Amino acid sequence: MVEAVLSPAAGQGTAANTGALIDIHGVSHWFEVPTGVLQVLDNIDLQVRPGEFVALLGPSGCGKSTLLRLVAGLEPATTGRITQNGETIEKPDPSRIVVFQDPTLFPWRSVWDNVALGLQARGVLDAQRGRVDEALQRVGLTEFAKAYPHQLSGGMAQRVALARALVNDPQLLVLDEPLGKLDSLTRIAMQSELVNLWQRDGFSALLVTHDVEEALFLANRVIVLSDRRPARIAAELVVDLPYPRHRGDPRLAELRHEALRHLGLDATW
């Protein structure tokens, strides 16, 4: 198993850890395709400790998002076991919230009503309306509570998606390239906002990205997946830098080179 090795700087400034302990034991996964069976993951062993931010890095199509779906409980692994705080993950649960690349907001619902969706579905909205206001405040959208999705920028829409996740006080935030469709300047700003939310709330985070700089800027650890199917863990990089991080830090440049080497792209550096 790949164990989490936290540097003294990791999680610096975070809230008391309330995040989930995620254990992935010997997970392999296959899909049925017209030509037979396609294996996408091979014997993945990984642990995410409470309050840790882990990034899965690899090229498109290598199996990163599949692993996230298994952790989220959206489908079962073909073989192996995934647990949260010692209990087998068998189905989706409000303690694990997925934030996708597309905010998937309902256009006919206001920002407030979109954020309230999870509480409404669980039948607790009337008793916990204040949590919606609090979540909007945490992402800086209080003044846009009555706005509709078509009135928002891409970055604002993704902040609504984050608020919709945070209103449930998740133990684990599962992030499937949530900033992938944003322009570069908005993406940089949102990366900092995401770190701030994670530090303040203390949840565990598991991020999928194919952006090397994003993985290194956000995570305590970066897990590099192989670029050939079925995906295996090719390397683990401990990002031994405090927060807030500075993109020009020479250590980040070293780690970037190392990550690109494991991806077979270091000749471009």
Score class of each variant (00 low, 15 high):
residue 162 L to I: 06
residue 122 R to Y: 05
residue 128 Q to K: 13
residue 176 D to T: 11
residue 147 A to H: 13
residue 173 L to Y: 04
residue 105 L to S: 02
residue 149 P to Y: 09
residue 152 L to Q: 08
residue 138 R to E: 08
residue 149 P to Q: 08
residue 101 Q to I: 14
residue 137 Q to N: 07
residue 137 Q to D: 07
residue 100 F to Y: 15
residue 175 L to K: 10
residue 157 A to M: 01
residue 91 K to F: 13
residue 128 Q to M: 07
residue 102 D to C: 05
residue 95 S to V: 14
residue 107 P to E: 01
residue 131 R to S: 07
residue 99 V to R: 05
residue 131 R to H: 06
residue 158 Q to T: 00
residue 110 S to W: 00
residue 94 P to D: 12
residue 183 D to Q: 05
residue 153 S to P: 08
residue 142 T to H: 04
residue 139 V to Y: 04
residue 125 L to G: 13
residue 183 D to S: 09
residue 158 Q to S: 03
residue 125 L to S: 12
residue 158 Q to L: 04
residue 176 D to P: 04
residue 147 A to Y: 05
residue 112 W to H: 14
residue 160 V to P: 04
residue 179 L to N: 04
residue 97 I to N: 13
residue 125 L to I: 15
residue 119 L to N: 12
residue 153 S to Q: 08
residue 158 Q to C: 03
residue 141 L to N: 02
residue 131 R to T: 07
residue 108 W to I: 03
residue 157 A to Y: 00
residue 176 D to V: 10
residue 109 R to H: 14
residue 163 A to P: 04
residue 118 G to H: 02
residue 156 M to T: 02
residue 123 G to Y: 06
residue 105 L to F: 08
residue 149 P to T: 06
residue 152 L to R: 08
residue 165 A to F: 11
residue 95 S to H: 11
residue 90 E to H: 13
residue 164 R to E: 01
residue 129 R to Q: 15
residue 165 A to Y: 05
residue 175 L to F: 11
residue 158 Q to E: 02
residue 119 L to M: 14
residue 113 D to E: 14
residue 120 Q to M: 14
residue 104 T to Q: 06
residue 104 T to H: 06
residue 138 R to W: 04
residue 180 G to R: 07
residue 100 F to V: 12
residue 166 L to S: 10
residue 121 A to I: 09
residue 117 L to M: 14
residue 132 V to A: 09
residue 121 A to E: 09
residue 104 T to I: 06
residue 117 L to F: 15
residue 118 G to K: 04
residue 110 S to K: 00
residue 124 V to E: 15
residue 106 F to Q: 01
residue 119 L to S: 12
residue 154 G to Q: 07
residue 145 A to Y: 02
residue 116 A to M: 13
residue 126 D to L: 11
residue 170 P to H: 14
residue 176 D to K: 09
residue 144 F to N: 00
residue 127 A to N: 12
residue 117 L to H: 10
residue 184 S to R: 12
residue 145 A to E: 05
residue 133 D to E: 12
residue 160 V to Y: 06
residue 126 D to I: 03
residue 143 E to R: 10
residue 148 Y to V: 00
residue 162 L to V: 01
residue 117 L to T: 14
residue 90 E to F: 03
residue 156 M to R: 06
residue 112 W to L: 08
residue 146 K to G: 00
residue 90 E to C: 12
residue 148 Y to W: 12
residue 170 P to C: 14
residue 150 H to V: 02
residue 135 A to C: 03
residue 172 L to W: 06
residue 168 N to S: 15
residue 164 R to Y: 02
residue 156 M to G: 06
residue 157 A to V: 00
residue 177 E to A: 11
residue 184 S to T: 09
residue 143 E to A: 14
residue 154 G to Y: 08
residue 182 L to Q: 07
residue 170 P to W: 06
residue 123 G to D: 09
residue 102 D to P: 05
residue 89 I to H: 11
residue 159 R to Q: 07
residue 164 R to T: 01
residue 157 A to F: 01
residue 90 E to G: 15
residue 98 V to M: 15
residue 159 R to C: 07
